[in-house]
Amino acid sequence: MTYMKNNDRLRVLNHPVLGAVKAESIYLNFNGRQIAAMEGDTIASALMANDIKNFRQVNPQAQNRGIYCNIGHCFECRVQIENDVTVRACLTKVYDGMQVSSIIQNK
């Protein structure tokens, strides 16, 4: 098929009906790790494209959480960006140099 495996990434580069997408040309920082992203990505899609499914930790004993609905309904994908602002990763577009971190709940 048209899915091109690229260093463990899950980007759908080409599509038989929808065509090709632009190359990943920008970077965001997620918990200190540099993540390649495409212009137009959301935080959620950029992380998922890099096979990062864990977005936040509910508490040290319990499960982590990632995207669930991907359209803003469920609020499961929330992350922190600059100045500790909490946003829904699925509704927030990335920009080059964006700083994103997991919300870690300790209690």
Partner: peptide, 18 residues
């Protein structure tokens, strides 16, 4: 993480292209 709604998969694949 890794469990998503079917609609999420649609947007992810066709809109986000992931």
């Amino acid at each position: 993480p890794g469990v998503i709604s079917i609609g999420a998969a649609q947007v992810l694949g066709n809109v986000n292209r992931v």
